[in-house]
């Protein structure tokens, strides 16, 4: 695909100004507009890139395939393709929730393009694997989640129409459907949900050699402090910061605190890189 096709497919927005580029990757169930609490202020000091994964927000739904987006690697490929299309190097990649892991996968593939990672409320595995690991959920909880998602989609006709009519439904029809959720296609949303909640990426953490800030909420029903600690312990260059916040969407509820942490991380890392011998440490 050519550059413009990718930027259009992922509804990529580039704004702000600054030598350092921050790329924001939204989490499951959301789209890039969730970052605006941050980006409104950070755009004065940084170049900002936001986008929607294929299947989310205003992305091109026709580019969705269950095969590619059935695992998080497909979403990571979206990021890598965007970075290549814009030819970005040394960026700071900030991912919320599942995008922490997606961002990690993208960074491992393109270490020259991603200089730093920020993980906001990450979890490499949502299920319990006791006694070693407490992901927080049992399989039955996650199956119930998929069931609840099914019940909440009024996009059923959209799902059924191709069965009856053959082929995919028209794009305009898709757009007329529920706006109560960020993602409008039940098949797409469920595929993302399964990729997010049923995959185990714990073994990949040690392969990420990029300086990584792990921001964890003090109370988060989706990703506990223990999970944050686990992530940090297994990342070669991980740095955990537990915020006195509650909930999973701290980039929206407590964006000031999160922004402060991120700015500090970027600057500290840059200073470290300019000091002689810093690379050794």
């Amino acid at each position: 695909m050519n550059k413009n096709a990718i930027l259009q497919r992922n509804n990529v927005k580039v704004f702000g100004s600054g030598d350092q580029t921050l790329v924001f990757a939204h989490g499951f169930g959301c789209d890039q507009t969730m970052w605006r609490f941050f980006t409104d202020t950070m755009q004065h000091d940084y170049t900002i890139v936001t986008f929607d994964y294929v299947g989310s927000g205003q992305s091109d739904l026709t580019a969705f395939t269950s095969h590619r987006y059935g695992t998080l690697d497909g979403y990571a490929q979206d990021i890598n393709e965007i970075l290549e299309a814009l030819d970005l190097k040394n960026i700071t990649l900030i991912g919320h929730s599942v995008s922490s892991i997606i961002g990690m996968l993208a960074a491992i593939k393109a270490p020259d393009r991603v200089r730093q990672l920020v993980m906001v409320c990450p979890s490499p595995y949502y299920m319990n694997d006791l006694p070693e690991y407490e992901g927080g959920f049992e399989r039955s909880d996650l199956e119930e989640l998929i069931d609840l998602m099914d019940k909440n989609y009024i996009g059923w006709a959209n799902y059924l129409a191709p069965l009856v009519m053959g082929g995919r439904a028209d794009q305009h029809f898709v757009e007329e459907l529920s706006t109560s959720f960020c993602s409008t296609d039940p098949l797409v949303a469920k595929t993302f949900a399964r990729a997010t909640f049923f995959s185990d990426y714990r073994s990949v953490l040690p392969n990420c050699n990029i300086p990584t800030l792990v921001l964890q909420s003090h109370i988060d029903s989706l990703a506990s402090v223990k999970v944050g600690q686990y992530v940090c312990d297994h990342l070669p260059k991980g740095q955990l910061s537990i915020l006195e916040t509650e909930g999973h969407c701290i980039h929206m509820t407590d964006h000031d605190k999160v922004e402060t942490e991120i700015r500090a991380f970027i600057h500290a890392d840059m200073n470290a890189q300019t000091k002689p011998g810093a690379a050794i440490g």
């Binding site: 499951f28 169930g29 929730s97 119930e144 989640l145 909930g247 969407c249």
Partner: peptide, 15 residues
Amino acid sequence: TRASCILFESYISPL
């Protein structure tokens, strides 16, 4: 339920 917690965190809270 735990599933509702995820739905809340993923969808409802951001909305």
